[in-house]
Design a protein around this nucleic acid. Structure first.
Length: 268
DNA sequence: GCCTTATGTTCAC
DNA sequence: TGAACCTAAGGCT
């Protein structure tokens, strides 16, 4: 679930369901109890996302910061408020809906200064209007680190995760281990533009779909679709399965403690 | 039912 | 480099 598109979608949903309302904020599990008391009953002014970080702004020095990590979830349901099921770190209750947060890496109250610092340590986000792709290019093109490594570095570019990394590199035939300083400007422009489009699609649809219609296995019959990431993709988690474009088995290796997927033929 | 794995990050050594 | 965090889903028995 949680790459940048998930958090931006949550920000939109929360803005829609809770924005402008005074919320009952609690921590049924207890681990956020002391801090939730400091925003309980306050009006949610706005919700925003930057990369994989979600921010709920209640007022000066009253911003709740959430990072879902690998398996955190945020779920919404209509009122009335049901008894909490499992470990609910934070619960929001508004006029019409209840939202429960489970298993996050981070759920904490930030001062305005800390919010500023958070934004400052994150790179441009393809899903934000204020994103400056030039900043990311300056870092990438000036480094020998591979494009695969830099796409996952949140201070270089915010919101891209393992799925979008694998898919955007595949879609443009880029070998994952290409050093950043060996990429040409045009290739970077194409990567950025495609991330903007793919990730906006992800926000709209609520899952990651990257396969172009002409390669859709349901149409070409080349391979069964695999759904474990929630959408339809070219190479992510398809190791050993035939490439949807050329039929070569998809490669995988462990790279910097994450699985890296690519087509050895299309991305030679 | 049990085991493995995961779209992520931080911290200790 | 590896462990910790601590949840859910899928595959297996």
């Amino acid at each position: 679930m949680p790459e940048g598109h998930t958090l931006h979608r949550l920000a939109l949903v929360h803005q829609d369901l809770f924005g402008g309302q005074e919320l009952a904020v609690s921590s049924p599990q207890g681990r956020f109890a002391a801090e939730s008391a400091l925003v309980d009953g306050m009006r949610l002014e706005s919700a925003e996302a930057h990369g994989k970080h979600l921010l709920h702004h209640y007022g000066p020095d009253r911003t709740v910061h959430v990072h879902l990590g690998l398996y955190g979830t945020f779920t919404e349901q209509p009122v009335p408020e049901p008894p909490p099921v499992g470990q609910v770190r934070m619960r929001l209750v508004g006029r019409t809906h209840v939202a429960d947060l489970r298993g996050p890496t981070a759920c904490e109250l930030l001062t305005d200064e800390q919010v500023t610092a958070l934004h400052a340590r994150l790179g441009p986000d393809p899903l934000r209007d204020d994103a400056d792709a030039e900043r990311a290019w300056a870092v990438i093109s000036g480094s020998r680190k591979t494009i695969a490594a830099q796409l996952m570095d949140q201070k270089v570019i915010a919101g891209v995760g393992n799925v979008y990394r694998a898919e955007v590199l595949f879609r443009h035939g880029i070998p994952p281990l290409t050093p950043g300083n060996a990429l040409d400007r045009q290739t970077w422009d194409v990567i950025w533009a495609d991330l903007v489009e793919l990730m906006h699609d992800g926000v709209r649809v609520g899952r990651i779909d990257t396969v172009r219609p002409e390669h859709d296995p349901a149409i070409t019959g080349r391979a069964p679709r695999q759904d474990r990431h929630g959408g339809e993709v070219y190479v992510y988690r398809r190791a050993g399965m035939p490439c949807l474009v050329c039929g070569t088995p998809v490669s995988m290796c462990e790279y910097q403690a994450r699985n890296l997927y690519w087509c050895p033929s299309c991305q030679a």
